[in-house]
Protein backbone atom coordinates (compact mmCIF):
# COMPACT_ATOMS: atom_id res chain seq x y z
CA UNK A 1 0.00 0.00 0.00
CA UNK A 2 1.09 3.55 -0.64
CA UNK A 3 2.74 5.01 2.41
CA UNK A 4 -0.03 7.36 3.47
CA UNK A 5 -0.75 6.29 6.98
CA UNK A 6 -4.34 5.55 5.96
CA UNK A 7 -5.29 1.89 6.29
CA UNK A 8 -7.90 1.24 3.60
CA UNK A 9 -8.26 -2.41 4.50
CA UNK A 10 -7.92 -3.94 7.95
CA UNK A 11 -8.95 -7.48 8.95
CA UNK A 12 -10.83 -7.83 5.68
CA UNK A 13 -12.89 -4.69 6.31
CA UNK A 14 -12.76 -1.38 4.49
CA UNK A 15 -13.08 2.06 6.11
CA UNK A 16 -16.86 2.09 5.63
CA UNK A 17 -17.16 -1.51 6.86
CA UNK A 18 -17.52 -3.16 3.46
CA UNK A 19 -15.69 -6.36 2.55
CA UNK A 20 -13.48 -6.20 -0.58
CA UNK A 21 -16.25 -7.68 -2.73
CA UNK A 22 -19.08 -5.46 -1.50
CA UNK A 23 -20.43 -2.64 -3.54
CA UNK A 24 -22.28 0.36 -2.21
CA UNK A 25 -26.07 0.54 -2.31
CA UNK A 26 -27.69 1.74 -5.51
CA UNK A 27 -31.04 3.46 -6.01
CA UNK A 28 -32.39 4.47 -9.43
CA UNK A 29 -35.42 6.67 -10.10
CA UNK A 30 -36.78 6.79 -13.68
CA UNK A 31 -37.64 9.99 -15.59
CA UNK A 32 -37.13 12.89 -13.15
CA UNK A 33 -36.40 15.33 -16.02
CA UNK A 34 -39.72 15.86 -17.78
CA UNK A 35 -38.38 17.70 -20.85
CA UNK A 36 -35.88 14.99 -21.78
CA UNK A 37 -36.65 12.03 -24.04
CA UNK A 38 -35.56 9.83 -21.16
CA UNK A 39 -33.82 10.46 -17.85
CA UNK A 40 -32.77 8.81 -14.62
CA UNK A 41 -31.60 9.85 -11.19
CA UNK A 42 -29.24 7.62 -9.34
CA UNK A 43 -27.76 7.38 -5.88
CA UNK A 44 -24.73 5.13 -5.74
CA UNK A 45 -23.41 5.21 -2.20
CA UNK A 46 -23.03 8.94 -1.60
CA UNK A 47 -22.82 9.72 -5.32
CA UNK A 48 -25.85 11.50 -6.71
CA UNK A 49 -26.06 11.61 -10.47
CA UNK A 50 -28.71 12.62 -12.95
CA UNK A 51 -28.58 11.62 -16.63
CA UNK A 52 -30.82 12.74 -19.48
CA UNK A 53 -31.02 11.85 -23.15
CA UNK A 54 -32.27 14.08 -25.97
CA UNK A 55 -32.68 13.15 -29.62
CA UNK A 56 -32.06 11.85 -32.15
CA UNK A 57 -32.39 15.23 -33.82
CA UNK A 58 -30.67 17.00 -36.69
CA UNK A 59 -26.93 17.09 -35.92
CA UNK A 60 -25.79 20.69 -35.40
CA UNK A 61 -23.55 22.30 -36.45
CA UNK A 62 -23.97 20.46 -39.75
CA UNK A 63 -20.29 19.52 -40.08
CA UNK A 64 -20.62 17.24 -37.04
CA UNK A 65 -23.23 15.14 -38.84
CA UNK A 66 -22.43 11.74 -40.30
CA UNK A 67 -24.53 10.96 -43.40
CA UNK A 68 -24.49 7.23 -42.59
CA UNK A 69 -25.40 7.17 -38.92
CA UNK A 70 -26.26 9.08 -35.78
CA UNK A 71 -23.48 10.65 -33.73
CA UNK A 72 -23.50 10.44 -29.94
CA UNK A 73 -22.50 13.53 -28.00
CA UNK A 74 -22.00 13.42 -24.27
CA UNK A 75 -21.40 16.03 -21.64
CA UNK A 76 -20.41 14.84 -18.17
CA UNK A 77 -19.98 17.58 -15.61
CA UNK A 78 -19.50 17.85 -11.87
CA UNK A 79 -21.44 20.45 -9.93
CA UNK A 80 -19.20 23.00 -8.16
CA UNK A 81 -20.86 22.04 -4.85
CA UNK A 82 -20.56 18.28 -5.36
CA UNK A 83 -17.44 17.47 -3.37
CA UNK A 84 -16.80 17.34 0.35
CA UNK A 85 -13.99 19.85 -0.10
CA UNK A 86 -14.18 23.41 -1.34
CA UNK A 87 -16.00 25.01 -4.23
CA UNK A 88 -15.13 23.23 -7.47
CA UNK A 89 -13.82 24.96 -10.51
CA UNK A 90 -16.66 25.77 -12.82
CA UNK A 91 -16.95 24.42 -16.33
CA UNK A 92 -15.49 21.62 -18.36
CA UNK A 93 -11.98 20.70 -17.27
CA UNK A 94 -9.72 18.13 -18.98
CA UNK A 95 -11.00 15.33 -16.77
CA UNK A 96 -14.64 16.09 -17.61
CA UNK A 97 -13.86 16.28 -21.32
CA UNK A 98 -12.19 12.87 -21.23
CA UNK A 99 -15.01 11.25 -19.24
CA UNK A 100 -17.55 12.76 -21.64
CA UNK A 101 -15.66 11.19 -24.55
CA UNK A 102 -15.33 7.69 -23.10
CA UNK A 103 -18.98 7.74 -21.99
CA UNK A 104 -20.14 8.59 -25.52
CA UNK A 105 -17.97 5.75 -26.83
CA UNK A 106 -19.64 3.21 -24.55
CA UNK A 107 -22.99 4.04 -26.12
CA UNK A 108 -21.63 4.00 -29.67
CA UNK A 109 -21.33 0.24 -29.19
CA UNK A 110 -24.95 -0.38 -28.30
CA UNK A 111 -27.17 2.27 -29.87
CA UNK A 112 -28.40 1.25 -33.33
CA UNK A 113 -26.86 4.29 -34.96
CA UNK A 114 -27.46 3.53 -38.63
CA UNK A 115 -31.21 3.89 -38.15
CA UNK A 116 -30.78 7.63 -37.75
CA UNK A 117 -28.36 9.00 -40.33
CA UNK A 118 -27.42 12.66 -40.05
CA UNK A 119 -28.71 13.01 -36.50
CA UNK A 120 -27.22 13.48 -33.05
CA UNK A 121 -28.10 11.89 -29.73
CA UNK A 122 -27.18 13.93 -26.65
CA UNK A 123 -26.37 12.40 -23.29
CA UNK A 124 -26.06 14.77 -20.35
CA UNK A 125 -24.64 13.53 -17.07
CA UNK A 126 -24.64 15.91 -14.13
CA UNK A 127 -22.87 14.85 -10.95
CA UNK A 128 -24.64 16.59 -8.09
CA UNK A 129 -22.65 14.90 -5.34
CA UNK A 130 -19.46 12.95 -5.76
CA UNK A 131 -17.82 10.24 -3.71
CA UNK A 132 -15.67 8.28 -6.14
CA UNK A 133 -16.84 6.25 -9.12
CA UNK A 134 -18.95 9.00 -10.69
CA UNK A 135 -18.10 8.03 -14.28
CA UNK A 136 -19.31 4.48 -13.61
CA UNK A 137 -22.46 5.82 -11.98
CA UNK A 138 -22.94 8.20 -14.90
CA UNK A 139 -22.74 5.44 -17.50
CA UNK A 140 -25.02 3.11 -15.54
CA UNK A 141 -27.52 5.92 -15.06
CA UNK A 142 -27.30 7.09 -18.70
CA UNK A 143 -28.08 3.55 -19.88
CA UNK A 144 -31.39 3.69 -18.00
CA UNK A 145 -32.11 7.16 -19.44
CA UNK A 146 -31.31 5.94 -22.96
CA UNK A 147 -33.64 2.95 -22.63
CA UNK A 148 -36.43 5.18 -21.33
CA UNK A 149 -35.99 7.51 -24.31
CA UNK A 150 -36.95 4.67 -26.64
CA UNK A 151 -33.74 4.89 -28.66
CA UNK A 152 -33.06 1.30 -29.82
CA UNK A 153 -30.05 -0.39 -28.22
CA UNK A 154 -28.55 -3.84 -28.55
CA UNK A 155 -27.64 -3.94 -24.88
CA UNK A 156 -27.96 -2.13 -21.57
CA UNK A 157 -24.45 -1.17 -20.42
CA UNK A 158 -23.37 -0.86 -16.81
CA UNK A 159 -20.12 0.30 -15.26
CA UNK A 160 -18.30 -0.05 -11.97
CA UNK A 161 -14.75 0.44 -10.77
CA UNK A 162 -12.39 -2.03 -9.18
CA UNK A 163 -9.07 -1.35 -7.55
CA UNK A 164 -6.25 -2.65 -5.47
CA UNK A 165 -5.20 -2.07 -1.90
CA UNK A 166 -1.88 -3.73 -1.13
CA UNK A 167 -2.33 -7.08 -2.87
CA UNK A 168 -6.10 -7.18 -2.35
CA UNK A 169 -8.63 -6.40 -5.05
CA UNK A 170 -11.55 -4.26 -3.91
CA UNK A 171 -14.79 -3.51 -5.70
CA UNK A 172 -16.47 -0.12 -6.17
CA UNK A 173 -13.96 2.35 -4.77
CA UNK A 174 -15.25 5.38 -2.92
CA UNK A 175 -13.49 8.74 -2.91
CA UNK A 176 -10.94 8.03 -0.22
CA UNK A 177 -10.13 4.61 -1.68
CA UNK A 178 -9.87 6.20 -5.11
CA UNK A 179 -7.33 8.67 -3.72
CA UNK A 180 -5.15 6.27 -1.77
CA UNK A 181 -5.46 2.86 -3.44
CA UNK A 182 -2.68 1.24 -5.44
CA UNK A 183 -4.78 0.86 -8.54
CA UNK A 184 -8.12 2.09 -9.83
CA UNK A 185 -9.86 0.59 -12.83
CA UNK A 186 -13.28 1.76 -14.04
CA UNK A 187 -14.88 -0.75 -16.41
CA UNK A 188 -18.05 -0.64 -18.50
CA UNK A 189 -19.60 -3.89 -19.67
CA UNK A 190 -22.16 -4.81 -22.28
CA UNK A 191 -23.81 -7.62 -20.32
CA UNK A 192 -25.37 -9.60 -23.19
CA UNK A 193 -21.92 -10.59 -24.40
CA UNK A 194 -19.88 -9.50 -21.37
CA UNK A 195 -17.74 -7.40 -23.67
CA UNK A 196 -15.70 -4.51 -22.32
CA UNK A 197 -16.83 -1.11 -23.61
CA UNK A 198 -14.75 1.07 -21.30
CA UNK A 199 -11.51 0.24 -19.57
CA UNK A 200 -9.24 2.68 -17.83
CA UNK A 201 -6.61 1.85 -15.28
CA UNK A 202 -4.01 3.63 -13.30
CA UNK A 203 -1.72 2.12 -10.72
CA UNK A 204 -0.05 -1.25 -10.67
CA UNK A 205 -1.67 -4.62 -11.29
CA UNK A 206 -0.52 -8.08 -12.27
CA UNK A 207 -2.33 -10.10 -14.93
CA UNK A 208 -3.76 -12.42 -12.25
CA UNK A 209 -5.00 -9.44 -10.29
CA UNK A 210 -6.56 -8.03 -13.45
CA UNK A 211 -8.42 -11.31 -14.02
CA UNK A 212 -9.64 -11.37 -10.41
CA UNK A 213 -10.78 -7.77 -10.77
CA UNK A 214 -12.67 -8.50 -13.99
CA UNK A 215 -14.43 -11.45 -12.37
CA UNK A 216 -15.52 -9.18 -9.53
CA UNK A 217 -16.88 -6.68 -12.06
CA UNK A 218 -18.88 -9.36 -13.89
CA UNK A 219 -20.31 -10.74 -10.64
CA UNK A 220 -21.35 -7.28 -9.48
CA UNK A 221 -22.76 -6.63 -12.95
CA UNK A 222 -25.50 -9.18 -12.41
CA UNK A 223 -26.76 -7.13 -9.49
CA UNK A 224 -26.40 -3.78 -11.29
CA UNK A 225 -28.18 -5.06 -14.42
CA UNK A 226 -31.04 -6.28 -12.26
CA UNK A 227 -31.33 -2.88 -10.54
CA UNK A 228 -31.38 -1.14 -13.93
CA UNK A 229 -34.10 -3.45 -15.19
CA UNK A 230 -36.13 -3.03 -12.00
CA UNK A 231 -35.93 0.75 -12.39
CA UNK A 232 -37.10 0.51 -16.01
CA UNK A 233 -39.93 -1.83 -15.13
CA UNK A 234 -41.08 0.24 -12.16
CA UNK A 235 -42.16 2.84 -14.68
CA UNK A 236 -44.83 0.41 -15.90
CA UNK A 237 -45.55 -1.90 -13.02
CA UNK A 238 -46.33 0.88 -10.48
CA UNK A 239 -49.06 2.23 -12.73
CA UNK A 240 -50.25 -1.35 -13.13
CA UNK A 241 -50.41 -1.88 -9.38
CA UNK A 242 -52.36 1.31 -8.87
CA UNK A 243 -55.25 -0.03 -10.91
CA UNK A 244 -54.83 -3.74 -10.16
Amino acid sequence: MKNTGIKLLENGRRLDGRSPKDMRSIKIIPNPIKNAGGSAYMEWGKNKVVAAVYGPSEALPRHTANPDKAVIKCRYMMAPFSSEEGHGRVGMNRRAIEISKVTAEVFENVVILDQFPGTEINIYVEVLQSDGGTRAAGITCAAVAMALSGIPMKDLPYAISVGKVGEDIILDLDKIEDNYSDADMPVAILPRTDSVALLQMDGTMSKTQFDTAMQMVLDAGKIISKLQKDALMSQYTEQGKKYG
Binding site: P32, K46, F81, S82, Q129
Partner: peptide, 26 residues
Protein backbone atom coordinates in the same frame (compact mmCIF):
# COMPACT_ATOMS: atom_id res chain seq x y z
CA UNK B 1 -30.29 19.12 2.43
CA UNK B 2 -30.31 16.94 -0.69
CA UNK B 3 -26.56 17.36 -1.19
CA UNK B 4 -24.88 16.63 2.16
CA UNK B 5 -21.44 17.34 0.66
CA UNK B 6 -22.48 20.94 0.11
CA UNK B 7 -22.58 23.33 3.08
CA UNK B 8 -26.19 24.05 2.14
CA UNK B 9 -28.55 22.83 -0.57
CA UNK B 10 -32.19 23.00 -1.57
CA UNK B 11 -34.30 22.09 -4.56
CA UNK B 12 -37.35 24.11 -5.53
CA UNK B 13 -39.96 22.54 -7.79
CA UNK B 14 -42.63 24.82 -9.23
CA UNK B 15 -44.88 22.78 -11.50
CA UNK B 16 -42.36 21.04 -13.76
CA UNK B 17 -39.61 23.60 -13.19
CA UNK B 18 -36.82 22.26 -11.01
CA UNK B 19 -33.95 24.38 -9.66
CA UNK B 20 -31.27 23.08 -7.30
CA UNK B 21 -29.16 25.49 -5.26
CA UNK B 22 -25.85 24.43 -3.72
CA UNK B 23 -23.72 26.43 -1.28
CA UNK B 24 -20.00 26.05 -0.75
CA UNK B 25 -18.04 28.21 1.65
CA UNK B 26 -14.30 28.71 1.19
Amino acid sequence: GLIPNAEGSAQATIGNTKVLAGIKID
